[in-house]
């Protein structure tokens, strides 16, 4: 059974990442604010499972706290995208072909011309780098994704006869959108939401890697990779571990998304780009 396998593996990987992030609030194996220079750059061993970095900090602990940063940035960014994109998409679909629809869709096209990295560059250039800027950049980029998806899902529903029946029953467009359209595009949104979540984690890692995301001392997977770069020849585990953490989270979310899609509605097509 492919569907339950995707769901199971994806769910397990996601659970591990989320559990690590939550656990890090109350417990980590070591305190990462303490440097331990004598024990720097240790290879993975029984005491430091994933080894230590150039300041002797425990990498396993940093990965746990880094998960927090990744998840937080991705959740808020997807939240921004859904919170603004879904209503815009519903609004555009309810007024299909009108000037509202036209403006929303052209606005979407415009945002699509700004990859999230470019948005982040623009924001950072005038406001300085921070995790918040990364959230805003990824969030803005998510708006048209959800607006388009919602609109196209809603448009095909507006053609359906049960919507006509609701209109004959005198219901207004906003009410029909909330009562009939939204519940019927919810599956679509959940599945795409999972995918955008995984893309958010990738984007966050990329932005922190080039210094446009979370700033030190906040640990983040992307920053850890940037720090590891000059040491990769003699301490490859510094680069290997955070990378595998990213792959685990993203793979888990993607598998979960595929599993959910098979479970909820096999006809849903996600856009991944």
């Amino acid at each position: 059974m492919i569907r339950s396998r995707n769901l199971f593996i994806g769910g397990t990987l996601c659970f591990v990442v989320v559990a690590a992030a939550l656990l890090s609030f109350v417990w980590t194996p070591y305190d990462i604010t303490q440097m331990d220079i004598p024990n720097k750059l240790q290879k993975p061993n029984g005491i430091h499972w994933f080894g230590t970095d150039h300041f002797g900090r425990d990498i396993f602990s940093m990965i746990m706290i880094g998960a927090r940063t990744s998840l937080a940035v991705a959740i808020v960014a997807v939240g921004i995208g859904m919170g603004l994109g879904v209503p815009l998409g519903l609004w555009a679909a309810a007024n299909k072909g009108g000037w509202i629809d036209e403006i929303i869709m052209r606005g979407n096209d415009l945002i699509f011309a700004f990859p999230s990295l470019v948005i982040a560059i623009l924001i950072t250039a005038v406001m300085g780098a921070s995790a918040l800027n990364a959230i805003i950049a990824i969030g803005i980029f998510n708006i048209p994704v959800f607006a388009r998806l919602t609109r196209s899902g809603a448009l095909s529903l507006w053609e359906r006869e049960f919507i006509l029946a609701a209109r004959v029953a005198g219901k207004s467009k906003p009410r029909i959108s909330a009562e009939h359209i939204l519940p019927n595009v919810a599956n679509l949104l959940i599945v795409q939401g999972t995918i955008q979540f995984s893309l958010g984690i990738l984007a966050e890692a990329g932005l922190s890697y080039v210094g446009l995301g979370a700033q030190p001392p906040t640990p983040s997977w992307g920053r850890m990779l940037a720090d590891a770069q000059t040491m990769v020849s003699f301490a490859p585990h510094l680069a290997l571990v955070p990378g595998l953490a990213i792959v685990t989270a993203v793979l888990g979310l993607n598998l979960l998304g595929d599993g959910l899609r098979d479970l909820l509605d096999p006809k849903i097509r996600v856009v991944r780009s």
């Binding site: 359906r160 006869e161 049960f162 006509l164 029946a165 004959v168 029953a169 005198g170 009939h180 519940p183």
Partner: peptide
């Protein structure tokens, strides 16, 4: 409007499946 009601063609598309 209550004086006027309608029955559509498609028995599968006429109802909210939820």
């Amino acid at each position: 409007r209550s004086g006027l009601q309608v029955v559509f063609q498609d028995p599968y598309g006429s109802f909210n499946p939820r």
